[in-house]
Design a binder for these strands. Sequence first.
DNA 1: GGCTCTAAAGTTTTT
DNA 2: CTTTAGAGCC
Length: 776
Amino acid sequence: MSISSLNEQQKAAVMYNEGPSLVIAGAGSGKTRVLTYKIAYLMEVIGLKPYQIMALTFTNKAAREMKQRIAAMVGEEKSRHLAMGTFHSQFSKILRTESEYLGLPANFTVYDTADSKNLIKTIVKEMQLDDKAYKPSVVLSRISAAKNKMIMPQDYGDANGRSADFMRRIPKVKEIYAEYQQRLRQAGAIDFDDMLCLTNRLFAQHPQVLEKYQNRFQYILVDEYQDTNYAQYLIIKALAAKHRRVCVVGDDSQSIYAFRGADISNILHFQKEYAPAKLFKLEQNYRSTQTLVEAANSLIAHNRGRIPKHVFSENEVGDPIQLIEAYSDHEEASMVAMRINRLVRSMGATYGDVAVLYRVNALSRLLEDAMRNSAIPYVIYGGQSFYQRKEIKDVLAYLRLLVNPADEEAFKRCINYPARGIGETTINKVKEVAHTQQVSLFEVASNPLKYNLPVNAPTAKRLIAFTSSLCEIAADMDKQNAYDVALRVLDMSGIVTMLKTSADVAAESDLQNIDQLLTSIKEYVDKHLEEEGVELGLVSYLSEVVLLTDADTDNKDEANRVTLMTVHAAKGLEFPHVFVVGLEEELFPSCKDVESADEIEEERRLLYVAITRAKQKCFLSYAKSRFRNGKTNYGVPSRFIREIDARYVQSNAKQHNSFDFTRKDESFFSRPTQFSRSIPGMMRKTEIKPTTYAAKTAPVSSSSLGASSLSSPAASNAFMPLQQVSVGQKVLHEKFGIGVVSLVEESASGTRVKVQFEHSGERLLLLKFAKLKIIG
DNA sequence: GGCTCTAAAGTTTTT
DNA sequence: CTTTAGAGCC
């Protein structure tokens, strides 16, 4: 490692190891460089072993990248043993090791947000509360907020948030919270927030365990410290209490996660908490042009209570921020597409150099359409994670149930799907018996007679059939790796058989996604076999998979595509050219409570983050009208636009009307608003909507959504819904190929046809969905 | 018990 | 507009 490539402040931050230190790192100031060099320095110069260093990040991606960079400096072998990862991944490992201290089973399940919401929904129903008022998402966020502040159900009182519940007319949150914890425990499960809460409880109640980890982790580094919540703050405090070798890195100006409990005062008060802590400020921005840095500074200057610093750049002066004003959201999207093409065609940029950032995922659709219309390759990050898709969760539920039969949410999901003649009535009976007898649903379902379950013989038989075949697989799953078990249980579940015979058009993509899941399990097993020579079982796999998000799915071919993502997702990344769209009041800033200075400040930081992603050019755009929630809204430009020093902004408003008509890099239809501009009232009618039905059913491979939509033949005219068919006709299906119609029948949902395909077997299809073409 | 249709509601942001 | 949740029907 060549420490000489660092600047003075960076070097000082790397080499200071006398005690606690705080590194305030402005945007683009080489924060990750300092962290990676510091970790390498601790190993190479100070002589710490890799496993003695704990380095915590917020995303798996950040951890992985940092690990790679360290590996490049000190070698793969050393970097592998670092305790590096997200808070959640690191502490869930510790919880698994120490589960007995907390009365948790070692194979505990982790409920994801959807499971938590389902459980809350069940509880609300059982308590006979108004489910209109007690919305699962609202209740969960209240509970989550409490947990982030380490408030247990019994402490959940007026002083810490309960009065807000009364105000919102949901006074029973405390009771729901208590029951929720109870039920998690019964199911042998914990939720995301528990990973941090329980770690704290573990350390607080078992000093000898805490001491073990204090001794193990001789140095603790925390990235993005401005985004830590109280629970995380406490964990660090406990672990570092003994040796106080702790280094936190962050930027108060980039704190954008207050909504999920991040407490900016953690970083603001660090020096006081860990006095005497050494402060390092990284103020030189190596990423962006001077103009962009100054523009961002002028914006963030409107926030109060910041840690004083002056971020500067010695890069070229660069171009001003370009402000793009659009008449409508459609026009905004096509203008962005046009600008991207201009950058690529005449400014020497590549598509991969460009990112389009937005405040909410909902804005991605129009942009996606615009990219497609202009033949711009793109990748979308975010939205629904692969692991949250229904078909994936269904399969994972079977795996979870194998590992932990007490898992109630998994049980309910599995027994319901695929349909096996066990419905709500039966499940309710099972539930009731299980709760009065204090045993798991699975236990009751496996022994309906023993528990006097009031069901008829066929139902009891079905219950036993289901549970016993799972038990069979469970019996020897310890001898098998995760992939082999997954194959067996998938076969047993009947999911694949069901999907293969399904008439639903979505079935095909479900199958492909399940296939992709299996591949990823196999890759996971193989990777560990290669690195550690161990065959990994289901327990390890499941404990990691809950923590994965879309951003963690490897992108093999991110080659030269425009990136579309939310500003939040863009944190930590950089691009030569950045577009930020939708800069309108109520969208960006988007807070419901525009009076709240704190919320506005967070939004302002968010835009600060967005602008500082750009290295060379930054574009801000807004639309005067936007179609949202089924109707057109007329918005006002974001206040943030005015807050940026006008010296650094250039507006397009003038050139807009005068020329641009002759531009050749644009098709007629991709800028319909050019016409509506002169006839505003006609706008909606003159718009030509692109055909978009291909994207919906395409299998999700997060890396190639755009490509699969592009290459799909669905958009061509070859497969239009047929009006009528008759038995014996030869037809062509876009996916299944050639086949012969063997049956035509009318059903409630339309005409249904059975087709014997040459290669895909017999299929039942709905005429209005299957894009069949008669060929003989 | 399972499927289909109709009605209402929804948009921050993520581990 | 889109998606999801509940109610009725088979």
